[in-house]
């Protein structure tokens, strides 16, 4: 099941590869075996002065620093894991110079924009269809976003050339009605009556020979649906 964590739907997730690669460049980050830099030097100096560190103060977190941190943690009642995290840092009296951004990271762009676009394509594609058909069309479009053979964004899928008739003839620009909005919301919230379909077409108007080579799995209103 490809559903990315849908519990927290309004949420953007970020992968923190960058911070992992540049462990040494910033203050107030966790120091562990392999860390280098000024922060390590400060920690080593403190550990040396208090008699925990046997080795040299060289700015590189190695075996001697690791042993010293464990010793320090044990004698100060901290979790002895050999990692200088927030608590150990505080116990060492090191500056935990904290960066505080002044503006929020996002102004809530993520989903409300998606709803408008999805509602527009649903409205244009499913005039006169039952509600089930509207949600199904929305679900197919969202399934395409998650499918490797299609673009990876909602706008990419909706505006893909040659994909949807209403995009070609401009009907997509019409204002959607309440029902289309409702269907777009249900689709974005994870309702998928098609069970993962990525194609739909109208048997009465479809001219493409290729599309008929798909295996029809489902029929709703004027549309048929297919999974691959």
């Amino acid at each position: 099941m490809k559903k990315v964590i849908s519990i927290i739907l309004l949420v953007i997730f970020t992968i923190s590869i960058g911070s992992f690669l540049h462990l040494e460049n910033s203050h107030a980050q966790t120091l562990a075996w392999g860390s280098k830099g000024e922060d390590v030097r400060i920690a080593q100096t403190k550990l040396k002065n208090w008699g925990y560190l046997d080795g040299r103060v060289d700015g590189t977190f190695g075996k001697s620093t690791y042993d010293a941190v464990i010793k320090f943690q044990k004698s100060n009642g901290l979790t002895a894991d050999g990692v200088i995290g927030p608590q150990t840092r505080a116990a060492l009296g090191m500056p935990s110079n904290t960066v505080k951004p002044t503006t929020p990271a996002s102004n809530g762009v993520s989903r409300s924009d998606d709803i408008h676009l999805l509602a527009r394509i649903i409205h244009a594609e499913t005039k006169g269809e039952p509600y089930l058909g509207q949600v199904s069309v929305g679900a197919v479009i969202l399934n395409r976003v998650r499918h490797p053979s299609f673009p990876n964004t909602l706008a990419g899928v909706v505006y893909q050339p040659c994909a949807f008739e209403p995009v070609k003839n401009g009907a997509i620009n019409e204002a959607p009605n309440d029902s289309a909005y409702n269907a777009a919301r249900d689709a974005l919230n994870g309702w998928d009556p098609t069970g993962g379909a990525i194609y739909f077409w109208n048997p009465a108007t479809a001219t493409s020979k290729w599309i008929w080579s798909r295996k029809i799995t489902l029929e709703i209103g004027n549309h048929v649906f297919a999974h691959n």
Partner: peptide
């Protein structure tokens, strides 16, 4: 393992 596996930003709406 103690590795960070996922991070979610809550978008206020």
């Amino acid at each position: 393992t103690g590795d960070q596996r996922q991070m979610l930003l809550l978008v206020d709406q």
